[in-house]
Structures are given as C-alpha cells and as structure tokens.
Design a protein around this nucleic acid. Structure first.
Lengths: 234, 234
DNA sequence: AACCAAACCTGCCTTTTCGCAGATAGATTT
DNA sequence: AAATCTATCTGCGAAAAGGCAGGTTTGGTT
C-alpha cells in the first residue's frame, strides 16, 4: 500500500462509516483502519480463514462465492464501492465464503473491536447497518425464489439484470461496467456455461443484445426485464 | 387479545428486546407494544401491505412466503418464538412477503418510531440485531446455493433438516414439532408436491423415515444429513 | 505472421424434473 | 356407517436441463 487514503479525503459518500459515524469516531476509524489493494482475480478472503474484522470497499468490484464438492461454484453476491464485505461472518470465527476481486480494488479493513466500539457509540452507524442488512436479506431471499422457480432463460436474464443493477453500464457502448466470463454468469445464474452460451445466442437472435468479439452490449434492457416480470415485486 | 403479557413477565429469554434493551426501554416498549394472537392459517401480514412496525414472536410458528404469477409459492423462511418478523421491510413502506401462522401464535408488534428510538438508545439491542441479520443473511445465501445446485433428493432432505433445526422434534415419537403439508415441504424445498411424495417413498424404503397415516417420524436424522453433506460447511 | 492456450460455441445424447390424470387413503360431515 | 371432500400417491409421457466431445474464435506471445 503506497499512501493510505484517510476517511476524510475519501470521496465515497455511500460508505456507511462516513454516513453514520460521529466525527470523533470517523477519525479514530481512519487512523486505525488498514487499507489493501487487490488485483483482478486476487482473493480478499477465503472460506475457513479466521475473521478479524470487516471490509469496506473504497473502490472496485468483488464477487462472493461459495464452492461445493462438485467443483460447481455459486456467486452469492456482487459488491462494489461503498459496500461491505465479510459482514456475514459477524458473530463467527471463520469465513463461510470466498471473496475475489473482479477488477483492481482498494478495500479498507476495520478490526472487530473497533467496529464493535463504533456500533456502541454511533447509533446511526448501527442503524444504517441494520438497514443495509435488511435490504441484503430481502434480496437474498428473493434470489432463493428465483433459483427455485425460474427456468434457464429467466435465470440468465436475471443474472444480467443483477450485474446491470450493481455495476451499471456505459451509456454509449451499452456494455456493462465489468467483465465477466461465461462461467461467472453461469455461477451467478445457477446453471452451466453451456446454457449461458445458448441463451446468449437466443438473446442475440431476438435483438436483446449484440455481440462483438467477447463483449456484450445490451440493446434492450426493458425486454430483458420483461422476461423476468412474472417474478418482479412492486 | 385477552390480557397482554408484559415484557417483564415474558418467559422468552431469547427475545432480542429482553436481551438488549435497558430496563427503562424494556418498560417503554412493553407498555407501548401491541400483542395479537393468530390461529393456524391466519396471515400476519401480506405482500403489498404498508409497514408500520416490526413483529416479535412470543409463542408459535410462522412461515414467510412469496408468490409468483405461476401460482407457485416459495417458503423463504420459518420462524418460531424469540424470532423477528417483518424485519426485511425495514427502510421500505410495503411488505415484500406474506407471513402465515403455522400453528396458533402470539406475536408482539412494535411501531417503527419506538423501534427506531430503542435502536438509538440501546446499542446492545442494535448490535444484537446486526448479529441476527448477519446469521439470517448467511443462511439465506446458503439457500441460494442449495436451490441452484442440489437435486430433488437433496432439496427434500435439506427441507426436513431445516424444519428440524427450527422447530425440533419430539424425542419419543420422533415427529417434528410442527405439521406441514406435502405442498408446504415442496414450497420450502423448491419443487412440487409430487416429487416430495416420491422422495418420501424412497426415504421410507431406505428406513430413514417411517410413515403412519400422514405423519412422519424420523428414524435416522444422521443419514438425512449425509445426503446433503457435500454442501455442509465446517 | 505463426503459434498457442484459454475461452467460447454447438450438436447430440442422457438424465432429471415436471405435471397431468386417475387411483387411493384419510379426515370430516351428515 | 355412508357420503363427501381433501390430501396424498403413482404411472407415464413430455419438457427441460445437463454434460461430453469436438470444433471455432480470440487474445496474447514468440
């Protein structure tokens, strides 16, 4: 790590620490936090490793993955700047999941004790965390339903919509602001890379997407959303 | 509601309010909370209804369910005494899910403002809530993986293990402390009632369960757990 | 420009799951 | 006890998804 970016200089206004902590505690966290940078593909933490604290993404993109004895993986969540990492481990001693950088990322790390103290002294921080968890939980439980009830076409469409919602797309090129392999999409959608390929062919024929080399541009996000509209809430 | 059970008299030691709130706030909550009783099959809340507060189960059992346009349902969670209900809605104005009593239940209701104030003044309450959410989230995200990767046999086994973990079983009769229909099991496992029936036949042939009338007794929980051991963590 | 490795695509067959429809059993009412 | 309703069970054909094998494209390297 070259030069640590202090919380006061950090431009990430969505960071829960910045939003909820009193100035006194913001300073305390800033001086005591650690900051690490990761290259695309690097692990932030691995299943089974001991948990010493909690991560806040200052910049970048990350996938949280779980493996089984089949070699098959499942992407459990995507996260970008402003979001938390490793928070499922609270109250635990070891990580349940793996976390891998999807692009070069800068991530802050706050130790358990400091985090605990901040929660005790900054009620707004704790309350915002509760909100954050509530929305994560809602999203995760919807994904349970999606995995249980959607067919492959819907799952793949949903996977792209999710990536779009998290990372957004370039308004000009219409390409997602993150590059994922077929296997990544499959691990997110809960299917195989072959099925993803077949769906991409279909989507291309239907003019929902266009493909140039290995890059995908999204011609019609609305139609993608129509595919999964049976499951939408609100 | 006949006579309200005050928090001070409540024997439910796992209630987060009792565990985390200062005495002053425990009293305040107790006097201002509402208490409702539900018969088996009653809705506690429905998708789309406005959210005025948060529920704490004092006694009973509940399923949280989501529906799609296919008529197919998905049980998202089971909850019993000591657990919270409607907490996914925090930060929202309307419920995403339906909540139905699985047996006669007594449930306390705390309004949003009071809940907010308690979080602000009782840091241990807020912190415990964060822990509660963290474990719920971990569980939900594991269920995403299960739905994505398990076959029907594993899903049905997992559904029973989950019911067993939440509600437990009678040590003598070896029957679960809650009665669920085939359709309920299917909605939990993420499949159809027919498939559940077929699996039950297989489990019976393998001496994992025994059936008398419509009741199921679990002869060998360990073997059930072996079925899903590929997915177990730790 | 030629080469190579990795990622991607596609056809084809196998396996799994679904879902209807009719049979049966258990619970409830008369 | 008979009638009736509901839940459960089972067989069977249809549909969906999986997965292998081999071919093709792409991006990077020599």
């Amino acid at each position: 790590m070259k030069s640590k970016i202090e919380c006061s200089e950090c431009k990430n206004e969505k960071c829960l620490i910045k939003q909820g902590c009193f100035d006194e505690w913001l300073t305390k966290i800033s001086t005591n936090k650690f900051q690490y940078s990761y290259k695309k593909g690097d692990y932030i933490f691995r299943e089974g490793e001991p948990i010493y604290g909690i991560y806040f993404i200052q910049h970048g993109g990350v996938k949280i993955v779980t493996t089984s004895l089949h070699g098959r993986e499942q992407i459990v969540r995507l996260a970008k700047e402003g979001q938390i990492l490793g928070h499922r481990g609270l109250g635990r001693t070891k990580y349940y999941f793996n976390s891998v950088a999807l692009k070069d990322s800068l991530i802050c790390f706050v130790e358990n004790e400091l985090f605990y103290d901040a929660c005790m002294h900054c009620p707004m921080f704790a309350y915002n965390l509760i909100f954050f968890y509530a929305s994560e939980l809602r999203r995760a439980e919807l994904r349970v339903k999606y995995q249980a009830q959607m067919n492959i076409r819907e799952k793949v469409a949903m996977a792209f919509i999710y990536v779009y919602e998290v990372f957004g797309m370039d308004p000009v090129t219409k390409m997602l602001n993150i590059s994922l392999s077929r296997q990544d999409i499959a691990d997110l959608a809960g299917t195989t890379a072959e099925q993803v390929t077949r769906q991409l062919r279909d989507f291309e024929n239907e003019k929902l997407i266009a493909r140039n080399k290995r890059e995908i541009s999204f011609l019609n996000i609305n139609k993608l959303e129509n595919i999964v509209s049976d499951y939408k809430i609100e």
